[in-house]
């Protein structure tokens, strides 16, 4: 059974593309056939996170306008053969694709792939409406921050109005120490307001940034907490029952050890 998933958030900068890339790689590592579609036309960057920019020949717009076949536009991942990316155009804008086009495209890809994951642009305008059109499941990414939660709430409402009822939540960029000291919204507060099934809690981790710059998603990295969190999300998407992990907090002692280079971390 193949599944079309849209990763969305409303607010920008919460980690939609990062999540898309990590889920894509994570699922591919487990042997699933995955295709990622970037729908952030004009602000394309999913290819960068996957380190595939230099291999792009055609894009989503070429496919939608019938200039090339889908197969020709798909870019294969360097490491994982069963992971493909359909990049979008950096020069066109969101009006170049409409919801019907994307729906048809998803239905086509669904035949061949286990997972079609759509990276949605920020906002609730046409780009969003297009991105969600063909999806069975929506993953809403948010951060423990009032504005991000407010926007996620709005997005969940919009998804409901578009009759997308299978909605899951990922809380990204959590800083456990700040949550503990009460300076950041805690997970219960967020779940209380948004009231949808949470499938992931991902800590803020500098490895996410460094690995993005290298074009290698953090998901395979066992030294990284965020990497582990993404791996858990992949498992939950595949129906496994995995408890949420406890975050390691960097306490005073550990910092001291680090200062004296006693800790390898």
């Amino acid at each position: 059974m193949s599944e079309v998933i849209v990763v969305t958030s409303g607010k920008g900068g919460v980690g939609k593309s990062t999540t898309t890339a990590n889920l894509g790689v994570g699922l591919a590592m487990r042997g699933k056939k995955v295709v990622l579609i970037d729908t952030d036309t004009g602000l394309r960057n999913l290819d960068l996170l996957l380190g595939l920019e230099n291999r792009i020949m055609y894009d989503l717009i070429d496919v939608v306008e019938g200039r090339v076949e889908i197969k020709k536009a798909l870019v294969r991942h360097k490491k994982y053969e069963n992971l493909q990316l359909l990049p979008t155009s950096q020069v066109k804008d969101k009006s170049a694709v409409n919801p019907a086009d994307l729906m048809a495209l998803c239905d086509e890809l669904r035949k061949e792939y286990d997972f079609v994951i759509i990276d949605c642009p920020a906002g609730i305008e046409q780009g969003f409406q297009t991105a969600i059109a063909g999806a069975d499941t929506a993953i809403v990414v948010t951060m423990p921050e009032v504005s991000a939660v407010r926007d996620a709430d709005k997005i969940i409402g919009e998804l409901g109005r578009s009759e997308k009822d299978n909605i899951k939540l990922i809380i990204n960029r959590i800083r456990p120490a700040m949550v503990d000291s009460g300076e950041m919204m805690d997970m219960d507060d967020i779940n209380d307001i948004l009231a949808i099934k949470c499938i992931g809690q991902v800590p803020d981790d500098i490895k996410v940034v460094t690995s993005a710059n290298r074009g290698e998603p953090v998901v395979g990295d066992n030294d990284s907490q965020a990497g582990k969190a993404y791996e858990n999300i992949v498992g939950r998407l595949l129906g496994e029952d995995i408890p949420f992990m406890e975050f390691e907090k960097e306490g005073f002692f550990k910092k001291l050890m680090k200062a004296f280079k006693l800790s390898k971390d």
């Binding site: 407010r150 926007d151 709430d153 709005k154 409402g157 409901g160 009231a195």
Partner: peptide, 8 residues
């Protein structure tokens, strides 16, 4: 019969 979300 449901939660009224932000913007509604």
């Amino acid at each position: 019969e449901h939660t009224v979300r932000g913007g509604e």
